[in-house]
Design a protein around this nucleic acid. Structure first.
Length: 976
RNA sequence: CGGCCCGUAGCUCAGCUGGUUAGAGCGGGGCUCUUAUAAAGCUCAGGUCGCGGGUUCGAGUCCCGCCGGGCCGACCA
């Protein structure tokens, strides 16, 4: 029985992986690993919860690949690595899916449908694709405990979130404010700035009208102030105009009228004009003008020119139309002026009834109507179309408007310095994100718009007394006296009242909270902290490691940090790896409409998970885009995984043939090739460990690639004769190769969990006491005795010299198989043992070093003179090559003995006759028969093959006609 | 407008704290080696390392400016 199980001739990665998966499942390897390290020091990982109401894509595999490799590595270092999964379950995305399936169009319709049932459907739909997620997670080898996953809709989770909000409330950081925020009129809720940071929220080249309007001066109707806007629908709400005090303005005459605008913006004037007067902003401040529309109630201080610091002359006219409630600057300015502000557009995005001509019109639809109206009244000075960036709702794609309304905010600006400080303690990979994208975001931080006027979410736990307006933030279910098992969601929670100290009845505010707050709460809420698991949380915070794609900078990375800083004055994570985005082959974003979305299952079935993972780790440095295609992924697999597998296949095939087993005693080899590859192995072990310690998967994988390349293309190539040499010598070579492959598999385990498992399990299986999975083994430790820097650098020189020699042979037209007498190395001092490696590789009998002078670029001088002995030697090599080629073509296996019949001229025959023993052993021949030129070949042989050896014609025939024909089917079947 | 990343051979990308004649893979031409390899190796077709300055004995590598691509913010009245 062979020591190693023979391998299939060609590697089928997906099939191999499926087998490994079955074994892991059968033997509960994941659970064993956790069990085994129970006593180890924890390495804390947080899983960023995905929303499982959509199919997972390749970009999810990217993030999961990076999560997995460092966790596997740490586990192999003996750390206790718990990997609790989690699901993000609340929020607009979920509601939207349900609304679509129910064909509901507005909040009103949802309320008519019934919030209780609506939320029940949200709860069930959010787990719709959970199977897909679990299947994919499993298939790519990402080990995650999904059985005990946390869910943000669990009552215990919500209670922890309430607790945290109360902490924040008590510190005075949770407040209600009348603020302008991006607002979705379809979802009828405002959005936070990090929601606007979601991909696709801002769209370039959105067409909008750009209109320049005449505002006639109250006391001088022939003179108009010109103001520009891209939102005509805000004009009925105009309350003021704003100018900059130090900006230069001009009054120009054009036809019968006078126009006032910034001096720097006269380019907007149409037709000829004459400057009548130069003014400054200060001259304009306080001027009254005729209002455009009569809808807003009159107020004494309204419709005047105000001073503002935000006016620029980049575009428009240098005079800014101000509508109070549809711009952040506008609102601030009007409130400072003590103006009464009022909406002209309702929460549904439609004009309110008192704005009579437009009542009921959707704000965007009113744009052309209003323009027409103004045109007819002679107030529209200029009309054009502008293309600019405009925000849309990140889920329902409705154009947003900036809208002032009451919202609840978290005063994140109060802890800005702490956020910056704790962020600076985090190791970001790539490092530039820390001070770049993330740092920059924190510098320009706004207060967090927390409340959402929606249904499916964590209810905002604030109760208000209608009588005395007292606000109370509730931090636990106990405070409400909720019975065990009560669903804390809407609508039930809205029924719960609290007695106020003034005697009134407090009711909860109607809002739920931003679901991003939920996910940021996972470090404590997943454990129902502080109600339970206090110790567990304390030991598990901050996380040692998290990883998500780049789009989470302002998402989860931020909410984790913000909550952790506000609640615990700590960062939430110590190390964060941020892979960039996956794009298509041509560098474009993937989108359904473009039909360039790569299907993860299709990819996995073609190339397998290891290939995809490996490609993610190696193709670019983390932080660069991943331009993916099936072809690119499989190229990387062929280049690396296949070569590795072939090396493994070599060991298995020849090890079995030689009857070698790793179970026996292994002694330290003195052979230079063995010492060299072990030194390279040691270098790699050190390098890979160091890279992984600093969360650099890319460099770690590149180092492994280099080792595998050296093993296959140099170590194995040069060592080939030794594997077939004397048993003692072969054992050394097998031992070394075995050692290198085992360690390679161990280093590879975090990255390519399947192939490393296949290789390691097979190789270690004959050795009693080996772990039964590579993932239960320890990561290789450094073995300093293997270091040999001078050998490694000397080998480097030797390899260059070999290249040099091959180049020279090529130029001279002397094939490498022609043995030559000698060569001399110039400019390098090569040890005797490596000189023999060199000699063998370039096929010369002897190599020496000419002088001890060491030059930067050593060369080799070859003696190209051919003696008759060398010629004969070359002839034999050429003959053997043709013979082996024939064997391969006939499908004969190495080791399979056959007889050889040859027709050849006297020169060839003579050489064969003298070297028949070498021929027989090297080519697995039983007998060698020379056949006369005119004689026939015996029957039952392979078809005669005519070949040319050094210009001479030779006919070969192989057959089983020896006394002991071993398994010669292949040969006979081809016979005449 | 601001921040960050990228711009290296036909294509995809490496090039650490500045140091010899700038690398790999794929594709193409030529050759070689070989029963582990639907392989591999060598070699050729010669990349002003986006452009322009500067620091330095020395810069793809550091600094400044510009151009181009991408991402993210701000503005978008």
């Amino acid at each position: 029985m062979p020591v190693f199980e023979p391998l299939p001739p060609h590697l089928n990665l997906p099939a191999m992986e499926e087998e490994v998966l079955l074994r892991w499942h059968r033997e509960r390897v994941f659970e064993q690993g956790l069990e085994q390290n129970r006593g180890g020091s924890p390495f804390v990982f947080y899983e960023g919860p995905p929303t499982a109401n959509g199919m997972p894509g390749v970009h999810h595999i990217l993030a999961r690949s990076f999560k997995d490799c460092f966790l596997r590595y740490q586990q192999m270092q003996g750390r206790r690595v718990e990997r609790r999964g989690g699901w993000d379950t609340h929020g607009l995305p979920v509601e939207l899916e349900v609304e679509r399936s129910l064909k509901l169009r507005s909040k009103q319709e949802i309320e008519e449908f019934g919030v209780e049932e609506f939320n029940r459907l949200c709860r069930s739909s959010v787990m719709e694709y959970i199977d897909e997620w679990e299947k994919l997670t499993n298939r790519i080898g990402f080990w995650l405990d999904m059985e005990h996953a946390y869910r943000t809709y669990d009552a215990s989770y919500i209670e922890s979130v309430w607790w945290s909000l109360k902490q924040i409330f008590d510190k005075g950081w949770l407040y209600r404010g009348y603020r302008v925020a991006p607002y979705c009129p379809r979802c009828q809720t405002s959005l936070s700035s990090h929601e606007l940071g979601q991909p696709g929220a801002y769209r370039d080249d959105t067409p909008d009208p750009g209109v320049t309007i005449r505002f006639r001066l109250a006391d001088e109707p022939d003179t108009s102030l010109l103001a520009w806007t891209t939102t005509p629908w805000t004009l009925p709400g105009n309350l003021a105009l704003a100018v900059g005090r130090d900006i230069s303005y001009v009054k120009v005459r054009q036809g019968g009228e006078r126009l006032i605008l910034a001096k720097a913006r006269t380019e907007v004037l149409q037709g000829g004009y004459e400057v009548e007067e130069e003014l400054t902003g200060a001259d304009l401040i306080g001027l009254r003008y005729q209002r455009l529309f009569p809808f807003l109630p009159f107020q004494e201080r309204g419709w005047r020119v105000l001073e503002a610091d935000f006016v620029s002359t980049e575009e428009g006219t240098g005079i800014v139309h101000t509508s109070a409630v549809y711009g952040a600057d506008d609102l601030r300015l009007c409130q400072e002026e003590g103006l009464e502000v009022m909406h002209t557009v309702g929460l549904d995005g439609r004009f309110l009834p008192f704005v009579e001509p437009y009542a009921g019109l959707f704000f965007k639809e009113a744009d052309p109507v209003i323009q027409e109206d103004l045109r007819q009244r002679g107030l529209l000075y200029r009309q054009e179309q502008v293309l600019h960036t405009y925000p849309f709702c990140w889920r329902c794609e409705t154009p947003l408007l900036y809208y002032a309304l009451d919202s609840w905010f978290i005063r994140t600006t109060a802890v800005k310095q702490e956020l910056l400080k704790h962020n600076s303690e985090v190791r970001w990979v790539p490092s530039h994100i820390r001070d770049g994208r993330m740092g920059n975001w924190l510098e320009t931080l706004q207060d967090w718009n927390l409340s959402r006027a929606r249904y499916w979410g964590t209810p905002l736990p604030i109760w208000v007394c209608p009588d005395c307006a007292r606000e109370q933030c509730v931090g636990s279910f106990l405070e409400l006296g909720l019975p065990e098992g009560t669903d804390p969601h809407k609508p039930f929670i809205d029924e719960v009242t609290l007695p106020c100290s003034c005697g009134g009845v407090m009711r909860r505010v109607p809002e739920v909270i931003d679901c991003w707050y939920d996910s940021g709460a996972m470090p404590y809420a997943q454990w129902h902290y502080p109600f339970e698991n206090q110790e567990r949380f304390r030991l598990g915070h901050p996380a040692d490691y998290i990883s998500e794609a780049l789009d989470q900078t302002r998402g989860w990375f931020y909410t984790l940090l913000a909550e952790s800083v506000m609640l615990f004055d700590q960062p939430a994570y110590r190390n964060v790896v941020v892979p960039s985005l996956v794009v298509d082959e041509r560098g474009r974003k993937m989108s359904k409409s473009r039909r360039n979305v790569v299907d993860p299952w299709e990819l996995l079935s073609k190339t397998g998970a290891d290939a995809l993972r490996w490609w993610f780790y190696t193709t670019v440095t983390v932080g660069q885009e991943y331009r993916i295609s099936a072809q690119r992924v499989s190229e990387s697999a062929v280049r690396f995984l296949n070569v590795l597998w072939n090396t493994q296949s070599f060991l298995v095939t020849y090890g079995n043939l030689a009857g070698w087993s790793p179970a026996g005693p292994r002694k330290v080899s003195r052979n230079p090739l063995d010492r060299w590859i072990l030194a390279r192995l040691e270098m790699t072990v050190r390098g890979v460990g160091a890279h992984l310690d600093s969360f650099d998967a890319h460099s770690a994988c590149r180092a492994i690639e280099a080792l595998v390349d050296d093993t296959s293309t140099w170590y194995l190539r040069c060592s080939r004769p030794r594997f077939r040499g004397a048993p003692e010598e072969a054992a050394e070579a097998f031992s070394t190769l075995w050692e290198v492959l085992c360690h390679t598999a161990l280093m590879l385990a975090p990255f390519a969990p399947f192939i490393s498992e296949a290789i390691y399990s097979e190789l270690s299986q004959p050795v009693p006491g080996s772990p039964n999975s590579v993932h239960l083994a320890r990561f290789p430790i450094s073995q300093p005795e293997r270091v040999d820097d001078s050998l490694v650098s000397e080998m480097e020189v030797v390899r260059h010299l070999v290249e040099d020699a091959r180049g020279q042979r090529e130029m001279r037209g002397v094939p490498n198989r022609q043995p030559l007498a000698g060569a001399v190395v110039v400019g390098a001092n090569i040890s005797q043992e490596l000189l023999s490696v060199l000699a063998a590789e370039i096929n010369v009998a002897q190599v020496s070093c000419s002088s001890p002078t060491v030059s930067r670029r050593p060369t080799i001088e070859i003696d190209f003179e051919l003696t008759s002995e060398l010629r004969k030697e070359g002839l034999l090599r050429a003959f053997i090559r043709q013979l082996q080629n024939l064997r391969k073509q006939l499908g004969l296996q190495p080791g399979q003995l056959v007889d050889l019949w040859v027709k050849a001229g006297s020169e060839v025959a003579n050489v064969l006759d003298h070297r028949v023993d070498q021929l027989r052993s090297q080519c697995f021949l039983h007998g060698v028969h020379l056949v006369g030129e005119e004689d026939p070949f015996p029957r039952g042989l392979s078809a005669p093959r005519e070949v040319v050896v050094q210009g001479m014609r030779v006919v070969l025939c192989l057959g089983p006609d020896g006394p002991d024909p071993l398994g010669s089917d292949a040969a006979t079947s081809d016979g005449p």
